[in-house]
Amino acid sequence: MGNRDQSKIISGEPFVTHVSEPVNTITIRLCSDPKLLKIVRAGIAHLCELAGFSEEQRHRVTLAVDEACTNIIKHAYNGATDKPILITARLIENGIEVVLRDYGKKTDPESIKSRDLDDIRPGGLGVHLIHSAMDSVVYDNTLPDGNQLILKKYLRKQRSDSLEEIR
């Protein structure tokens, strides 16, 4: 990867650890270039390892975050590779929370549905994989611009809060 590519990883400010930065939190700023997804996967997998997830569970969480990024690139940004994505992942009590923020086309959460898996065709599996992998999937459409997706995975599954309201 040349210097030109490296400069695209960070949009605006570099990775900064503020004094007030919560412990056990990683923040990844990247542009919407698919070649950077591997970096996201590595960071999320490592945080999952710190959380104590099994190899299978680490893979599932990583897959869900990767699919969420893919959806942002394909749908919110229509394939543009120079748009910002902000990912904040943190250890929570008994698991991990990952928040993905984009500033692209707003998505109506009602329109985001898993497709019928009996309908064998290329594409449309990402949403299903996200819901299969995570314990909680919440689309926050209260923001003035863009979208925010909040994913949670627990070490031991708690009550389902997949329908929790955004406060």
Binding site: R41, T62, L63, D66, E67, T70, I120, R121, P122, G123, L125, G126, L129
Partner: peptide, 11 residues
Amino acid sequence: YMDSSGVATLV
């Protein structure tokens, strides 16, 4: 590692 893009390609 394979995501839904890879699966779609194989489908």
